[in-house]
């Protein structure tokens, strides 16, 4: 085995910090929270999803295509409420745009 000890220790450290973040959040579920913090947690998915979507799209090399695909997907999702249709529709638009430009 060509594995060096410092590499394995680094990997162990990477695992430890990641696992700690995951576990500590899950372990705080019993906290009794005020209306404000309950509302805070309800809005977490919304703010997080927006943060996962926007930089990914607007900082991409082909952002005009991605933006258009996302716009079409948004329209489809709004009308159909179906995750599958949104992904398929957005993907199709993106692929067609890649073929023509």
């Amino acid at each position: 085995m060509s594995t060096a000890l410092p590499v394995l220790l680094t990997l162990l450290g990477m695992w430890a910090v990641t696992y700690a973040a995951r576990l500590s959040g899950l372990s705080l579920g019993h906290l009794r929270l005020s209306a404000f913090w309950l509302a805070f947690l309800r809005f977490v998915p919304i703010s997080v999803f927006a943060a996962l979507i926007v930089p990914d799209v607007v900082n991409s090399a082909d952002w005009p295509r991605q933006l258009l695909a996302c716009a079409v997907a948004t329209l489809l999702l709004w009308r159909t409420r179906s995750l599958a249709w949104g992904i398929v529709g957005g993907f199709t638009v993106y692929w067609l745009l890649r073929q023509v430009s």
């Binding site: 680094t10 450290g13 990477m14 910090v17 990641t18 973040a21 995951r22 576990l23 500590s24 959040g25 899950l26 372990s27 705080l28 579920g29 019993h30 929270l33 309950l38 947690l41 977490v44 998915p45 997080v48």
Partner: peptide
């Protein structure tokens, strides 16, 4: 390790949100 911690500390929010 520090870079990993910074990139992954957001999981704390996910855990909190799921645990509710």
């Amino acid at each position: 390790i520090a870079t990993t911690a910074v990139l992954n500390v957001r999981h704390l929010l996910y855990g909190l949100s799921l645990a509710q």
